[in-house]
Simulated scan of single mutants.
Amino acid sequence: MTKGVLIDLSGTVHLGEKEIPGAIAAVRSIRESGLPLRFVTNTSRMTRGMLQELLKRLGLAVPPEHIFTAPRALRGYLRQNGLRPFLLVHPRLHEEFADLRQDEPNAVVIGLAEEEFHYANLNAAFRLLRDGAPLLTMGRTRYFEGEDGLQLDAGPFVVALEYAADTQAKVLGKPSADFFLAAVADLGCRPEEVVMIGDDAASDVDGALAAGLRAILVQTGKYRSGDEEKITRPGGMLARDLAEAATMILSTSREQSREGSGK
C-alpha cells in the first residue's frame, strides 16, 4: 500500500521558471489525500532556498526540510568526513559550502558547473584526483531538459575525470540508494510503501527501484519516446505527466483501502 510519495522537480514539476501544466494541482491533490511527500532533486544550479522560492512563485509552499537536494547531501558527506573540497560547481552553489574549509583541498566536488567546466579547472581537478583525492558528484545524469531544449549535465564531465584519473566517483544524489532511503526515512515509511515520480528513466526510476521503492516515469521534461525501455528493473510504471501519476497513485491507494476494510 502506498504510504508516501517522492517527486522529482526539474522536468517533473517545472521547467526553468515555468510550471509543467497540471503539476502544482497534482501535488496539492496528493497532499489533500493525506499522503506525505518529499521532493528529491539532483538540481545543482540552485540551492535548496532558491528551489523553495521557485516553488513559492509557482504557488506551492514547501518547508525547506521537505526538499532533499544532492548538494545538501554532498555537503553533509564532506562535513562528516572532514574533507576540504575543490568545488567544480555552478557559482550559485558556492554558498552551500561556504562554511567548509577549502584551503589545500583534498576532495573534488562536481555539479553542473556550466562555464566553469573549462580546461584549467578540469586539469586542477584531475591533478588532485591523481594525488588520491576522492571524486564526489551530485549525480551522473547525462543531460536534462532546459527551457530551450536538451542540455549537457555533469555526468559526461564526471566520466571524463574518472577515465583520466583512473578513479571511480561516489554519487551522493540520485540514483544513490542512500539518497532515496534518507527521504523515505523522513517520510516514516518503508521503501516498498513509497512511490518515486520523475522524468529520468535511470536516475529517478531505476535508482528508486534498486532502492526497493516503486516508481513512475513521466513523459515530460527530458523524457523522449522509448525511454521506458531503458528501465532495467521490473516494476516501473509510465504516466503522461505528474497529474496522471497522481491519479494512478490515489486511485490505487483508495482501492487498497477498500480491500483492507473489507468493503
Rank of each mutant, 00 (worst) to 15 (best):
residue 1 M to P: 10
residue 1 M to E: 08
residue 3 K to R: 14
residue 7 I to D: 00
residue 11 G to H: 06
residue 13 V to E: 07
residue 13 V to K: 06
residue 16 G to F: 12
residue 17 E to F: 12
residue 18 K to Q: 15
residue 21 P to T: 13
residue 25 A to P: 04
residue 26 A to D: 04
residue 27 V to D: 00
residue 28 R to K: 12
residue 32 E to N: 12
residue 35 L to F: 08
residue 35 L to V: 08
residue 39 F to V: 02
residue 40 V to L: 10
residue 42 N to Y: 12
residue 44 S to K: 00
residue 48 R to F: 07
residue 48 R to D: 02
residue 49 G to D: 11
residue 53 E to H: 10
residue 54 L to C: 03
residue 60 L to K: 06
residue 61 A to G: 09
residue 61 A to Y: 03
residue 63 P to R: 07
residue 64 P to Y: 09
residue 72 R to K: 14
residue 74 L to Q: 10
residue 74 L to I: 12
residue 78 L to Y: 10
residue 80 Q to K: 13
residue 83 L to H: 05
residue 83 L to S: 05
residue 86 F to L: 08
residue 86 F to S: 02
residue 87 L to W: 05
residue 92 R to C: 03
residue 93 L to S: 04
residue 94 H to E: 14
residue 94 H to D: 15
residue 94 H to M: 13
residue 95 E to G: 06
residue 95 E to Q: 13
residue 97 F to N: 10
residue 97 F to V: 12
residue 97 F to T: 09
residue 99 D to V: 04
residue 100 L to V: 03
residue 103 D to L: 01
residue 104 E to Y: 11
residue 105 P to R: 01
residue 106 N to K: 08
residue 107 A to C: 06
residue 109 V to E: 01
residue 112 L to M: 04
residue 112 L to T: 05
residue 112 L to G: 00
residue 113 A to E: 04
residue 114 E to T: 11
residue 116 E to P: 00
residue 117 F to M: 12
residue 118 H to Y: 15
residue 124 A to R: 14
residue 128 L to I: 05
residue 131 D to Q: 14
residue 133 A to N: 07
residue 137 T to N: 05
residue 139 G to E: 00
residue 141 T to G: 11
residue 143 Y to S: 12
residue 144 F to I: 15
residue 145 E to Q: 15
residue 147 E to K: 08
residue 149 G to D: 05
residue 151 Q to L: 15
residue 154 A to Q: 06
residue 155 G to Y: 00
residue 158 V to S: 02
residue 159 V to P: 01
residue 160 A to N: 07
residue 166 D to C: 07
residue 166 D to K: 15
residue 166 D to G: 11
residue 171 V to K: 01
residue 172 L to G: 06
residue 176 S to Y: 00
residue 177 A to R: 12
residue 181 L to V: 09
residue 181 L to A: 11
residue 184 V to Y: 04
residue 185 A to G: 10
residue 185 A to I: 03
residue 185 A to D: 11
residue 185 A to F: 01
residue 188 G to V: 06
residue 189 C to F: 14
residue 194 V to M: 11
residue 194 V to A: 06
residue 195 V to F: 02
residue 196 M to W: 12
residue 197 I to N: 01
residue 197 I to G: 00
residue 198 G to C: 13
residue 202 A to F: 10
residue 203 S to V: 02
residue 205 V to L: 05
residue 208 A to D: 00
residue 211 A to D: 03
residue 211 A to E: 05
residue 211 A to M: 11
residue 213 L to N: 03
residue 217 L to S: 13
residue 220 T to N: 00
residue 221 G to D: 08
residue 222 K to L: 03
residue 238 L to D: 07
residue 240 R to D: 07
residue 242 L to V: 02
residue 242 L to A: 01
residue 243 A to S: 15
residue 245 A to Y: 08
residue 245 A to K: 07
residue 249 I to C: 04
residue 250 L to I: 09
residue 250 L to V: 08
residue 250 L to M: 10
residue 253 S to V: 07
residue 256 Q to F: 05
residue 259 E to L: 13
residue 260 G to P: 08
residue 263 K to Y: 13
